[in-house]
Simulated scan of single mutants.
Amino acid sequence: MQILENNKSMNKTKLNQKILIITNGNLDHSSSRIRALQYIPYLESEGFTVKWLPRVPHKSKKSGFDRIVFAFKKRVFLLRIFIAILIGNYEILFVQRFFVPVWLFVNCKRRGKKIVFDFDDAIYISSTDKKAEGKTISVIKKANMVITSCEVLNDYSRRFNENSIIITSAVDTKIITPANKKNKLFTIGWIGSEWTSKYLSILEPVFIELSKKYKFRLLLVGAKDSINFNCETKKVKWSLENETKYLNKMDIGIMPLFDNEFERAKGGFKLFQYMSAGKPILASPVGINKDIVLSGDNGFLCKSEKDWYTAFCNLMDDEVLREKMGIRGRELMLEKYGLDVCSVKLVKSLKELQLYK
């Protein structure tokens, strides 16, 4: 009964709670920025006092001296994190995708601190770290609450910690907004990283067939320079400052994926980016993509090469359909997946966490 009373008053008052946020990366690290850092203004507006410590500094330049300085700073940053966790003044420790040593978590819990662990990829699968799964399980078990980005990760987490919830990887819909600009040449867009650009190989035969019927351009944001599909392609480096500009140069957004265990745990973030920019989406029916893409409504799910080809043709031939799907995608972002919506979920979950011993 007391919990119910607390819940009633919780939404009426702002808590004066201190949160220590530890991230695996800095502002240039997508998971750190998307899963933690962009929430700081919302947390502060709800009365939380936030301190953020990244595991690493901003990426250094490529000269030998810069790499030495970067390596030294990494050690300093790590030591700073350990000291802050051990003696810092906070009520909640929010850890994003960083394997904090278990003994530090034990120390936190002895001091009455609440631990939140957030992860948005299958970090328990690693070809370079044989201990990755063991470390992931240990952190999940010690946390008071675990936040994941999709059902696959949540199911995995709940095997070891029942207090696991899903908050999808939010896009700030106030920053990524639609622009009513028409391209002279139809543009198929993709955004990601050099590492994830390997998935584009799925579409190479599809692009070859499309080029026999249509004139179009590929706009690849963040892809490897070596990628070549023998069709007109513009490759640009990703930057936070230019992200919205390039999204708005696309007519449709794509997300091909392999259907493997690691890919099934992906969070679908690039689909949210396309939708926020008002673009129809085409995606492989893998993991959360099957929930985000409402086939025929805001885009199409494409399993085979024929599916991809047909979906491309439908959208390239029908401007009205593209506009309709883009509008619907934007509506879904505002209703379910935008930063404003996800911030409410996060704040509510953190407040509820403080009610339980």
Rank of each mutant, 00 (worst) to 15 (best):
R67G: 07
E243T: 05
V139T: 15
E46P: 00
L334E: 15
M145W: 03
K345H: 13
V116Q: 07
E44S: 05
L334C: 06
I175C: 01
E162D: 13
Q2K: 07
I175M: 11
S60F: 05
D259S: 10
I281H: 05
A283C: 09
P256N: 00
F272E: 06
Y39L: 14
L271V: 12
T168M: 14
W190K: 02
M316T: 14
S201V: 09
N289G: 10
L353G: 05
Q354F: 09
K59D: 11
L210G: 03
I188S: 07
L218W: 12
V146N: 03
I85C: 06
K234D: 13
K279C: 04
S30K: 08
V286S: 10
G268N: 10
S45P: 02
W195N: 06
I115M: 06
L355C: 08
E352S: 09
A71N: 14
D225M: 08
L4D: 09
Y199L: 07
I208P: 00
Q38H: 09
G253P: 03
N161K: 12
N183W: 01
F300T: 11
G278E: 06
L218A: 10
E331Y: 03
I252E: 02
T128F: 12
D121M: 07
K249G: 04
G287T: 11
T136H: 02
I202G: 04
K213R: 15
N144P: 02
L220H: 02
Y156C: 00
N314P: 05
P178A: 13
K290C: 14
I34S: 00
L218H: 08
S343E: 02
K130M: 12
A143R: 02
M145C: 10
G267N: 14
E323Q: 13
D28A: 06
Q96S: 11
F65K: 15
N26C: 09
V320S: 11
L355W: 02
R55W: 09
G134I: 12
S304W: 03
G112F: 05
L334I: 06
G112V: 07
V293A: 13
P205R: 02
I3E: 06
L210A: 04
K237P: 00
D259C: 12
R328P: 01
I81M: 14
Y309L: 15
I140L: 11
Y156D: 01
I188R: 02
P178E: 13
S138F: 00
I123G: 04
E305F: 07
L210M: 08
R97C: 07
I288G: 05
D317T: 09
E194T: 03
I202K: 11
P57T: 07
D317I: 06
G192T: 04
I40Q: 03
P178V: 15
N289E: 10
L79H: 06
R328E: 13
E162L: 12
R75L: 14
L240E: 15
T187N: 03
S32I: 00
N16F: 00
G64V: 15
R159P: 00
D120I: 06
V236Q: 07
